[in-house]
Design a binder for these strands. Sequence first.
DNA 1: TTGAAAGCGCTAACAC
DNA 2: GTGTTAGCGCTTTCAA
Lengths: 364, 364
Amino acid sequence: MTASRPRRATLPDVAALAGVSTAAAGRALGGYGSVSEDVRRRVAEAARQLNYRANRLAASVRTGRTDTIGVVCADIESPFFARALRGISDVAHEHGFSTLVTNSDEDLASEREAVQLLLHKQVDGIICAPADVTQVDHLAQAQTGGTPVVLFDRVSDHLEADAVVVDGMKAAYQAVRRLLDLGHRRVAIVAELRQPREQDWARFLTPRTEVSLGELSPSEARLLGYLRAHWDAGVPVRRELVRRTGTYAAEAAYQQTKRVLALKNPPTAVFTVDNLMTVGAYRAIRDLGIAVPDRLSVVAFDDLDWTVLVSPALNVIAQPVYEMGAEAARRLIRRLRDPEPAPPGTLFMDVTLVERESVAPIPT
Amino acid sequence: MTASRPRRATLPDVAALAGVSTAAAGRALGGYGSVSEDVRRRVAEAARQLNYRANRLAASVRTGRTDTIGVVCADIESPFFARALRGISDVAHEHGFSTLVTNSDEDLASEREAVQLLLHKQVDGIICAPADVTQVDHLAQAQTGGTPVVLFDRVSDHLEADAVVVDGMKAAYQAVRRLLDLGHRRVAIVAELRQPREQDWARFLTPRTEVSLGELSPSEARLLGYLRAHWDAGVPVRRELVRRTGTYAAEAAYQQTKRVLALKNPPTAVFTVDNLMTVGAYRAIRDLGIAVPDRLSVVAFDDLDWTVLVSPALNVIAQPVYEMGAEAARRLIRRLRDPEPAPPGTLFMDVTLVERESVAPIPT
DNA sequence: TTGAAAGCGCTAACAC
DNA sequence: GTGTTAGCGCTTTCAA
């Protein structure tokens, strides 16, 4: 026979032991209403004796608030989101909020599921990096239901919400433009581009300015920057240099990079659009034993701790990741606190082009 | 005047619209008890119409379960924990659990706070990488209160709980022993060793076997393996080659490594005990322009994606990180499901010594 | 300042 | 299979 563990102590238990009403005990422990110093002490002592553990769920059912922010990362293993998460949770913690973190793996169905979960758990608000900026009905629904949403890393034209992002198009433009200005004429790009929306793709390759960032995934935006840099510089875009992995995986980037470097007329520079693409591409370059920057210049989106460990150190586009997370949290909390908040807006944060050793000019 | 948003629909609302009792609606939506197909359909339809959102908090208050696992990481930004977290949450998800993730930053006070938070939020169980294996009273208290705990990455002699770890001592022993067998006589080690428990430290440097893993932090365990390898090989330990950063920071490792490499009689090999130490140490090696492995052999604890990107690729001790996380979750869930669980035990998982290009023998 | 009592939204007994 | 009812643990009127 097992000794049946005694029921966990509840507020009435504490109140009884302290010789006060449940309400008084609640006030003493919860720090609301007013209680005499005497009661406060007795209740605290009783709580200690009974090893009382407050049930914030019950409180939340009553108050309707959970003091919790839900976060939907696209890939929690990526250093980008890990760092952003810190920014988010530091700010949240500072304001008395906890964070409930979920992961979508850049998959729309998982994201929907994650958002449902967060809503069921009654989070006060949601920070989300949407897997597909054109499919955000579930987020709109959350807002309709009274749960504010802040977009992170991606804006959407289909959702009226605060957003914190960088202008990936502009950043890519500058980085690629620099390569072209240095004389490069064959610059490869390695990107996911998961939704091959055929018409968009065709549209993409035609010079035009009428594309909104709020319709593009980060990798699409960065590709567009790449394209525009070419158009503006009057350098023709070579389709064989635009490498689409179709999937968010280093291995695919590895394959694509190997293939592009094996062309009869290989690129003299390569631009990778994120973490995983960079890892894959760089591994290919290493395996092929290609000299950087002598035979190939390299520029990567996102700074990573290892980009200074390889030789030569990589030129990168660095995002203010921590600050982006922090700012997203700040905006959400502001909206939660303020009953009459300002209309939502998009905050564009500045990137930094970090020049290191992986880029060289083409001798003329 | 703002249109006051209508109250969120509740179960009684749905029930009313569907023309059934609250209980029936609950059963239909919650998937418990038995309901006719007809009722199920009407309720589902009503829920849809009202944009009903279940409140799982309320359910949890009633049932006493939250189907949530609390996790206390020591550093969520480290690839180690990020990957482990995936293992945890994949398994959790598979079994219908969510995860509530917190972070201690290897700080005991933060860890205590995190555990309190998790308990207040009524998580069903906790997976924790304790910041200090000798200070685990808060975890013991959680268990006493009926919330099972599984230790992750670290065992403690002061807590009777399941644990999933690797034998860092043995792994370090093997790696260092290999270096010694290759003729190295001056092998440096770079480690945190945050608690300089003076007596232990003295004890450490004296050959003896009576040290339990459950009293050591990971970095201490790895240091011990390093020491034992020396003792067994009959190679004297040089105190100036044991570099203690005292803090979990790459920068400190950078400084320590620079210093040790600047010795009049520098090491011919260096062993780094984790992620951050490796990043810092390797940066120092790179900055100093020291040829690896010709002038210096390098072995690192933990595999990281960049260890194959640098030239030469690093020899590493790889842990089955994902599996460790997954297994920790499995053990916790087993304990949650099984009312009469087996006595707790420690699972030691095997590491892999990955030979790459950063180690060379010393010519005799 | 304090206590009694109602009720947050849900599930579990138990009767029908 | 379905409804009635009690109650999870807490906070919040409201009256004293």
